[in-house]
């Protein structure tokens, strides 16, 4: 494998007595779409800020493109922060050209790029208006443009879908899809497993500042592989359920009527479970060894669902 685009080794960051990130190892391969998955307060934003040199780790190492983050390497990174904001009194064109200039795109070239992007998101006619005169949704579009206008090789999106209306969610998904097609490396943080599952090929699950699972999505699932069985019975009966629960190697059972989801303990063989059920005369209609979903991995590793039933933040 080529050198990772982002590499953290033993990174640690504390705020006063609060440990935000502890002993974090992370490697994001080139052209990967990488999800930092974890509940709120698990250290996602701190990790991103360390990658971007907004905050320096108390211990450990951070490298992007093979060297410590600095002027040369940060120019190749685009960023969409979770808490978004722009200079309200600047015009749409000026702020985007300015932000591109901070990435060392000369203003002349920047203006051309900004025009093209505004055209693409349908804001070309607002180029001369101030940011504050735009609707929230339009400002979010500017924020996307700011993250990609300098053609970065690495794009970092912190909770990118939070607070977006459905139209902008789709717009962002399109942008991400384009970035993937172009082979750029994408890092995004989220507490929504479905986003990670659907969009990413690599994942790092964070809990309380530590990585609890890390690798390609396939690897992460395989580590937990063959440990789930989907079982379908002809009809539910108390006898059948008791037989399922008594079977060897069964770690947990949930069911919805005659459809069971069985978690096996480490080292248990699914065949032993099937043999047991047949011997007990249970009428099996469906028996499938399943790849775990990220949700299951998450539950198992973190011990609780990632979303603490928080209300969706709609701005």
């Amino acid at each position: 494998m080529a050198d990772p685009v982002v590499e953290l080794r033993g990174a640690r960051k504390t705020y006063g007595s609060t440990v935000a990130v502890e002993g974090l190892d992370l490697a994001i391969p080139s052209s990967a779409t990488f999800a930092l998955l974890g509940p709120n307060g698990s250290g996602k934003t701190t990790t991103i800020r360390m990658i971007l040199r907004i905050q320096e780790p108390d211990a450990g190492q951070v490298r992007i493109f093979g060297r410590p983050p600095g002027p040369g390497s940060l120019d190749r990174v685009g960023y969409l922060p979770e808490e978004r904001g722009l200079y309200p009194k600047m015009t749409v064109r000026d702020i985007l050209v300015f932000l591109a200039e901070l990435k060392r795109i000369p203003p002349k070239e920047g203006r051309g790029r900004v025009e093209r992007w505004l055209e693409r998101v349908g804001l070309a006619d607002r180029a001369g208006d101030t940011v504050e005169s735009l609707s929230k949704g339009m400002q979010q579009k500017l924020q996307f443009i700011a993250a990609v206008v300098h053609d970065p090789e690495l794009v970092i999106l912190d909770e990118p879908f939070s607070g977006l209306d459905p139209i902008n969610q789709q717009a962002l998904r399109d942008i991400v899809a384009d970035l993937r097609r172009e082979g750029r490396t994408i890092l995004f943080s989220t507490h929504i497993i479905e986003h990670a599952e659907r969009l990413c090929d690599h994942v790092c699950i964070l809990a309380r500042g530590r990585a609890v699972a890390h690798g390609s999505v396939g690897e992460v699932k395989r580590e937990h592989g063959e440990r789930y069985v989907a079982l379908g019975l002809e009809t539910w009966s108390a006898v059948a359920e008791a037989a399922v629960r008594e079977a060897p190697g069964v770690g947990g059972v949930t069911h919805d009527g005659a459809a069971f989801e069985i978690r096996l303990v480490d080292g248990a063989a699914p065949q032993a479970l099937l043999r047991h059920l047949v011997e007990r005369g249970v009428d099996v209609r469906r028996f499938e060894v399943m790849e775990p979903t990220l949700h299951q991995v998450f539950l198992e590793r973190v011990g609780r669902p990632p979303v603490e039933m928080e209300a969706p933040t709609v701005a």
Binding site: L52, V77, P81, G85, L99
Partner: peptide, 9 residues
């Protein structure tokens, strides 16, 4: 919050 974006550069 624009500072976060500026400080990334």
């Amino acid at each position: 919050r624009v500072v976060e974006l500026v400080l990334s550069s």
